[in-house]
Write a protein that binds this DNA or RNA. Sequence first.
RNA 1: GCCGGGAUGGCGGAACUGGUAGACGCGGCGGAUUCAAAAUCCGCUGGUGGCAACACCUUGGGGGUUCGAGUCCCCCUCCCGGUACCA
Length: 815
Amino acid sequence: MESYDPHSLEAEAQQFWADSCAFEVDEDPARDSYYCLCMFPYPSGKLHIGHVRNYTIGDVISRFKRMCGLNVLQPMGWDAFGMPAENAAIQNNVPPAAWTYQNIDYMRGQLKRLGFGYDWKRELATCKPEYYRWEQWLFTRLMEKGIAYKKTAPVNWCPVDQTVLANEQVIEGRCWRCDTEVERREIAQWFLKITDYADELLAELDHVDWPEQVKTMQRNWIGRSEGLEVEFEVPGHDSLLIYTTRPDTLYGATFMAIAAEHPLALEAAEKNPEIAKFVDACRKTNTSEAALEKMEKLGCPLGIDAINPVNNESIPIWIANFVLMGYGTGAIMSVPAHDQRDWEFARKYGIEIRQVVEPADGSAIDLDAGSFVTKDGRSCNSGDLDGLEFDAAFNRISDQIEALGKGSRQVNYRLRDWGVSRQRYWGAPIPVIHCEACGMLPVPEADLPVVLPEDVEFEGIGSPIKKMDSFIQTTCPRCGGAAERETDTFDTFMESSWYQERFACADQHQAMLDERADYWTPVDLYIGGIEHAILHLLYARFYHKLMRDEGLIKSDEPFQRLLTQGMVLKDGSKMSKSKGNTIDPQELIDRYGADTVRLFIMFASPPEQTLDWSDAGAEGAYRFLKRFWTAVREHIDAGLERAEIDADALDEAQKAMRLKLHETIRKVSDDFSRRLTFNTAIAANMELLNSLARFDDRSPTGAAIRQEVFDNMVLMLAPIIPHVCHRLWRDLGHDSVLIDHPWPEFDAQALVQDRIELVIQVNGKLRGKIEVDADADRERCEAAALANEQAQRFIGDNPVKKVIVVPGKLVNIVV
RNA sequence: GCCGGGAUGGCGGAACUGGUAGACGCGGCGGAUUCAAAAUCCGCUGGUGGCAACACCUUGGGGGUUCGAGUCCCCCUCCCGGUACCA
């Protein structure tokens, strides 16, 4: 008998798909399309096991949808710009472009070896000018619309390396390369006004078929709030503008806090060395929110007071290290009695804590123990707000402030505008020219793309184009005089925000998108890691709306349905190169073949669940494939005569075998289409094979049932283990092409049962099982249960209080 | 800190709508086959007690709702992801 040889049969199947261009698809208005997209990889070197999981899920669903008759598009490309290429360049003296293209070639080979059904003619890499030129083009349009604008924002600065650091490059407040304490620096950067779209981004979450947890995270991230903007006068200086969602607590404001970079702070620092020292110390911190929230909260009195507009009281202004200039107005009002952070700050510095909200029942609170944070109380110590509940107090004080001309009601968002400038080399150049005379100008469309020079040498750690005259020197598109190019590049989230549309028309070189984008998109199913739940998925939604408003596409949202794959962890933590715990699947592919790797990763857990990786069970997947192969081969080699199956003439064992088969088809179909739980679909097929191993009927009817089981198993498993199924389908005597064969349907008649099992419980505990006619009514089930010997034993002399019958399932006797 | 998840045998997981906890697989133990081993096949395998029939216990911890809770509610612990310049 021919033994299972995955490597040769996988090569053969892959050759067949390649020769027949099996996965190249075109727009066909007569057919329903299905666009299944997996988040494209960053070409870091080799595939890791998280990629294998992600892409196997996508391939399984794509192949399944194709068998359901849909016109399926499954493309693949490369998110090719990013920091690791620069780090590799610095370490190994290889240009980032060369390193990246080399990685792409290797990883493409790995993807092909795994048998994923991609339409490779649509392949794209975001580092190619033909791709990023359109991003540059859209950006110039956004500059003209005022959606792209420039302002200063904080970055992490290493004073020794003289370079900007990513948050990831700051380790416990220090530079990852030279261990120097990192400073915060304000520099001018480009932003996209995502806040203009905040309401739409919020509202349309209701129209997409996404996991509720992801929608919740995005809602919280956008963080819409209604509050009051209030102006506090500062005698002798510009007034302070603050925003609060708790204007009902204005009477409890006992200090103001401003950022170290605030003009008032800088002004005071010039005169007062104490303040200057504090302001300087405030800069020695990471810009990340987590770091800011967790660091010790420190303050320094400014020696200047602000006037609270509600009662004209003078309250001190403090510089606080937890207030950032870039976010909001760089100033906040502090109400220690009703905000925990303010409470801790006030206790530390001996600032007054004044209660202005009391519990609705009038009971006392202990402000020595902590702040009292609630919207379910009543105002007190607040002038004419006293006794009012939150909404009434909010409205009365807001009316008063507005009447005084000291502020107005405002809707605010936690969401901040998207900073897209990076002071790095390996990214798409920002298409802007600086002219002394004419200012900042977008690069004219005819001059696009602004091509990033790829043949560069890294001297030190900064971006090489920042000192490359041939790149920088240009002429002003308006006055024709000498001018300089912007040397910052785009955030790599820009490229990954629109590739889903570009895949629909990747060969279009006259425009960013064409009408094919409207045929394929929105993406029917987008699959990728849960770690992208906020940033990438929010930016992509925003970018889609920008393209829509530019007339490039009709739909409102890019991804109709979202499947968030759980992280693949190793020893309980996220895999990363820096931790050295990435898992290379190549060894498993070499040893067992692609089908085993695909089967094993899909069997290990359901897609959305976090998976702590261990390859200990791979042998089991390989064993199943061998058993399956051997069972089919034995059936074929036996060559027994097969009869037509006559459902009415089957014996008990034959009926039971067909019942098991059709139950399995029903379950697996549901797992594939609704639940997306491939682990249970595989388990059901394993059970089916186990049942078949015990079915040793050699009669013509038995052989026909065995053939029916194998045909259907091959069809059900084809999306997961396509290579071996491709081969077995042919060997089972079929001329058709398996990938285009319709998905099997279960035979309802085979599922009909005469007798079913009922569970008997006494007081909710399992005490026995009985068999009854499938159509037995409540009374008969109850009577049969009460008559059961086991049940009797546990009922004993106790009176039966109640009997609960769940039809078809159980009888619970309550005593 | 804040936001979102998670916790079930030695391990990965199953239990889909509140109804038999532990499907399926790994590992382990025993057996068949073999000169022997690998491979393969068959059986057993949550814990405690018991010769056994069987009983009791058990889904991170504590409380609650219910005839019945892994599943729903409240509180807590630990772990994971995100936290705007990792992608």
